[in-house]
């Protein structure tokens, strides 16, 4: 610092690092992850936009029955045709995206928050607290999610709520275990230990330093979980345990599309099934990409 910088040709003396990166730089960083990742992110953004704007975009009411127009093919009136009851498939798809995303959002949101809380407490406190939390997570883990969901339906009745609650319970130990293992590693890092030496309370260290630093890894996993939750919820709806007909939902739509399939009309089942696959794959790619970024940063 004492020696002045040489009269250099490039910009004056030393490079001045920006304090924090702005949003445009972040977007460029994300794009650098590769075209597949970028495409997956775009797909997800589009999906969310479509779901949010469904009432504006949908040409028909999703439940508007028009029996005269049953199983109409694609055309200018119905871009994706109609189903057995003559409902516009495009409109139902758009509205279906809302329930399709809302369910997993609740599942992933709650399981991530609970999982982080349980995992961090287990890792930080150690001892009997850790044993207790770990054992209870193991117990939940051993319970098949589907079985749990069916149990919940038996208790709460069919609908979106029961499977979502079941999934929250099923996914929490999954996140909790992951968080516990990375938090245990993270808390032995000197930067966390130096906060302890400085005299901070465990609560401030965990909330202000430990959790923010492990969050990227957890979010990467949550993105992948989102895809799984979407698929499983759709599966439950398909089986009739989840969202009930006639509500527009991809799982319900696939189920209702089975009959037309027998008459060689593909779209009523194919369109929602494709949407499910695309969403699940996109979430998977984004999750993997995020995990990749985190591990690169770790180096």
């Amino acid at each position: 610092m004492s020696a002045s910088a040489p009269a250099s040709v490039k910009d004056a003396s030393t490079p001045t690092p920006p304090l924090r990166r702005g949003a445009p730089a972040r977007i460029r960083k994300l794009a650098a992850q590769g075209p597949l990742f970028t495409a997956a992110v775009l797909v997800l953004v589009l999906l969310v936009l479509l779901a949010v704007c469904a009432p504006l975009l949908a040409p028909y009411e999703p439940d508007a029955i028009d029996l005269k127009n049953s199983l109409a093919g694609t055309g200018p009136d119905h871009w994706l045709g109609t189903d057995q009851s003559g409902r516009d498939i495009l409109s139902r798809m758009l509205y279906g995206a809302r329930t399709g995303l809302l369910g997993p959002l609740a599942v992933v949101g709650v399981s991530t928050v609970l999982g982080i809380a349980m995992g961090v407490v287990a890792a930080w406190r150690g001892g009997w607290v850790d044993s207790l939390l770990s054992r209870s997570m193991d117990l939940l883990f051993a319970f098949p999610a589907m079985l749990l969901a069916i149990l919940c339906v038996a208790v709460f009745g069919a609908g979106l709520t029961a499977p979502v609650i079941a999934m929250m319970i099923a996914y929490t130990p999954y996140v909790g275990r992951l968080v516990r293992s990375i938090a245990r590693q993270e808390q032995t890092r000197p930067y966390i230990e130096s906060y302890r030496v400085q005299g901070w309370s465990g609560w401030s260290i965990c909330t202000r330093h430990l959790i923010p630093n492990i969050t990227p890894t957890v979010l990467a996993q949550s993105a992948i979980n989102f895809g799984y939750a979407l698929m499983e919820l759709a599966g439950l709806s398909y089986l009739g345990f989840g969202v009930q007909a006639p509500t527009a939902d991809w799982g319900v739509m696939v189920s209702e599309g089975q009959n037309p399939l027998l008459k060689d009309v593909m779209l009523p089942a194919l369109a929602p099934a494709t949407a499910i696959v695309i969403a699940v794959v996109a979430f998977g790619i984004v999750g993997e990409g995020l995990a990749d970024r985190v591990s690169k940063r770790e180096r």
Binding site: A5, T14, P15
Partner: peptide
């Protein structure tokens, strides 16, 4: 040795060690 090593972002025109 005063100062610090030259980073990749700097390209002093003369001897790289001149500043120190």
């Amino acid at each position: 040795i005063p100062g610090r090593p030259v980073s990749l972002a700097e390209a002093p025109p003369g001897c790289a060690f001149a500043a120190r």
